[in-house]
């Protein structure tokens, strides 16, 4: 039982190291961008003295490594710094956007994960049937289209023609939960359509590969029905690959939603990051990137912990 706390500690330590490496890459990468926030705000025609003064004010005239140390020092004390563009605290800027992103990802996950697992189970149960082939064909079709295309198709049908849902998901403070849910329906549906095929097909494949095991034949010879064989005998032995693919998709829902956010003008982290890159608002870009990296690290650790917790061989050694 001591396995899991040990693993979590090890992974967290490794995660901190990974984040540090990522922070280096981000910092160097961002510093390679042409121009900076000063030229971006003051415009091309600004006098060189004005630009220099503005840079000095923001600390951009310091050497790269000093700036990095400053930034990292702030980070370690929990200070993400201030936006170069408008001077607001980065933590505050990001805070509400992160909330929105997690809300959208959460809604999409709550819908797509159970649906994918259920479809995976059903297609494994009725493999080779018309239902199986139909489901496979439809989900594969959705995954083959680019996200923005799926998004526009949904907008065309559900907001332009039917008028059921808004095509813009602009959230405002004070929106009720129900209203927020209503606003994110279409982006969440887009994301669901994009990730379902992946999870469903992995579930189906993992279960089918377990169905060839001798203990499945034994279950049949015990007179156990097909449904129970799939759910009780096959599924627990197929969990490891399923967990991994679900977690990768969850990470994608948080990190990879930029395009969907842009299409629906949804005020999420992805859109904030793109805007900040355009404005050369380095501090915000760095903070967003670190959050994305941390998401991957944490979710992967979560997947490994779950994989151990669901495997009796690892959970209960001899």
């Amino acid at each position: 039982m001591g396995n899991i706390p040990k693993l979590i500690i090890k992974r967290l330590a490794l995660g901190v190291f990974v984040l540090w490496v990522v922070s280096l890459f981000i910092f160097l990468g961002v510093s390679l961008l042409p121009g900076d926030v000063a030229t971006e705000i003051l415009g091309q025609s600004a006098l060189p003295e004005t630009v220099a003064a503005f840079r000095h004010e923001l600390g951009l005239d310091l050497p790269l490594h000093i700036r990095y140390v400053h930034w990292l020092g702030g980070l370690l004390t929990g200070d993400l710094g201030h936006s170069l563009a408008n001077g607001r605290a980065v933590s505050q800027l990001i805070g509400e956007r992160l909330g929105n992103t997690l809300f959208l990802a959460g809604v999409a996950a709550c819908f797509s994960v159970p649906v994918s697992l259920l479809l995976g189970l059903l297609t494994a149960l009725y493999r080779g049937s018309v239902f199986d082939r139909f489901t496979n064909a439809v989900t594969l079709t959705w995954i083959s289209f680019p996200e923005f295309f799926v998004a526009y198709i949904l907008i065309m049908f559900f907001s332009v023609q039917a008028g059921w849902f808004p095509s813009l998901s602009t959230m405002r403070e004070g929106d009720s939960f129900a209203h927020s849910l209503y606003l994110v329906t279409l982006p969440a549906l887009t994301l669901t359509l994009v990730v379902t095929a992946h999870m469903m097909r992995m579930t189906r494949a993992a279960i089918i590969s377990v169905l060839g095991s001798p203990f499945i034949e034994m279950a049949k010879l015990k007179g156990i029905g097909q449904r129970r064989i799939i759910v009780w005998h096959a599924l627990p032995n197929a969990l490891a690959p399923i967990i991994n693919v679900v977690v990768i998709d969850l990470a994608y829902l948080i990190v990879g939603v930029v395009v969907v956010e842009v299409v629906f003008v949804y005020p999420g982290l992805g859109q904030l990051m793109i805007d900040s890159v355009q404005r050369r608002d380095i501090t915000v870009v760095q903070a967003c990137s670190l959050i994305f990296a941390a998401t991957y690290v944490l979710l992967n650790m979560f997947a490994d912990v779950l994989a151990i917790a669901t495997n009796p061989r690892l959970m209960y050694p001899k």
């Binding site: 095991s213 001798p214 203990f215 034949e217 034994m218 279950a219 010879l221 015990k222 009780w232 005998h233 627990p236 032995n237 669901t310 495997n311 009796p312 061989r313």
Partner: peptide
């Protein structure tokens, strides 16, 4: 009618 298989290690479900 019940069945006892050759390899118990393979015929028992490792997850339960």
């Amino acid at each position: 009618i019940a069945y006892v298989a050759q390899s118990a290690a393979a015929a028992f479900n490792p997850a339960h």
